[in-house]
Design a binder for these strands. Structure first.
Length: 272
DNA sequence: AACCAGGCGCATA
DNA sequence: TATGCGCATGGT
């Protein structure tokens, strides 16, 4: 990968094994929308980003080298060797199929609170509606970043609200869970910033203390928000994959990166 | 117009 | 430990 600065912003050449469409469209992040010009527009870490991928590389519009290195490099997991990783996965017949059908999916490293909150909202819900609820959450309670863009509201802000205050985002029964999570995070009863450096089991136990957070939401938070690549979220789709293809458990070749393998299997199975 | 969605809490055995 | 049910809301 070669990182260059040009008149558009930052330009990445020769990026191996990275597909922006797949990465932003595989159900791990909910604040990205593709414009009809083919440019992805999204918000993370309080920054608006416009990004697109062409045959020649990836353009991060209006981004400085500093912002790229401080935020987006890790957000898009650009320093992990996915070629090598996927090669290991290919020791397993089914994973080989998934990796070859959908090469270039990266696991995003999102903010812990946003990830936790987003996956609380995801339970018993579908992706278009999850995106809608999160959009309204940001519009009502986030900080304006432009005419149409808002930051993801912090746990401190949400912890001040009541279930009734959240009514306009139409989160349904999940509203009380969002507030419990915000209060525990704001009080420091659960330190979200420490989860990344905790042993997986320990971190999972912490998260499960929150009402409405079970093992699935906990594992999604740890995988997509804390960089714990051995967290393995099991939802309905992955449950099907496990029953159909891995009745005796995961293959040895995914050890330490179960979560990344999960993302390939999840996306493959969901595209039936 | 039913069915179901990247689950979880709670009750019951 | 293991099932089963209800949940708010709305996309398909």
């Amino acid at each position: 990968m070669e990182v260059l600065k040009n008149e558009d912003g930052m330009f990445l050449k020769e990026v191996n094994c990275f597909d922006l469409d797949l990465t932003l469209n595989c159900g791990q992040a909910f604040r990205w929308y593709k414009t009809n010009e083919g440019i992805w527009h999204g918000i993370a870490f309080g920054k608006i980003l416009e990004i697109c991928q062409t045959d020649s590389g990836i353009i991060f519009f209006h981004v400085s080298a500093e912002e790229f290195n401080n935020i987006w490099r890790s957000y898009f997991d650009l320093d992990r060797d996915y070629s090598n990783l996927c090669e290991s996965f290919c020791a397993d017949r089914s994973l080989k199929t998934a990796v070859e059908l959908f090469p270039g999916i990266h696991i995003l490293r999102q903010e812990p609170w946003e990830t936790l909150c987003s996956f609380i909202i995801s339970q018993n819900n579908n992706i278009p509606r999850i995106k809608g609820i999160i959009k309204r959450l940001c519009e009502f309670f986030g900080e304006p970043l432009s005419a149409n863009d808002f930051s993801f509201p912090g746990a401190e802000r949400i912890s001040m609200l009541s279930v009734d205050d959240l009514a306009p985002i139409r989160a349904g029964f999940r509203a009380k869970y969002i507030i419990d999570a915000a209060q525990k995070a704001a009080k420091g009863e659960i330190d979200l910033d420490r989860l990344a450096s905790m042993p997986l089991e320990h971190a999972r136990c912490e998260l499960i203390k929150i009402k409405g957070v079970g093992s699935k939401v906990a594992d999604c938070t740890l995988l997509y928000g804390c960089g714990q690549t051995d967290a393995f979220p099991v939802d309905v789709w992955v449950k099907r994959v496990m029953a159909e293809l891995y009745p005796n458990g995961l293959p040895e070749c995914v050890k330490g990166s179960q979560g990344i393998a999960q993302q390939y299997l999840f996306h493959w199975r969901r595209q039936q």
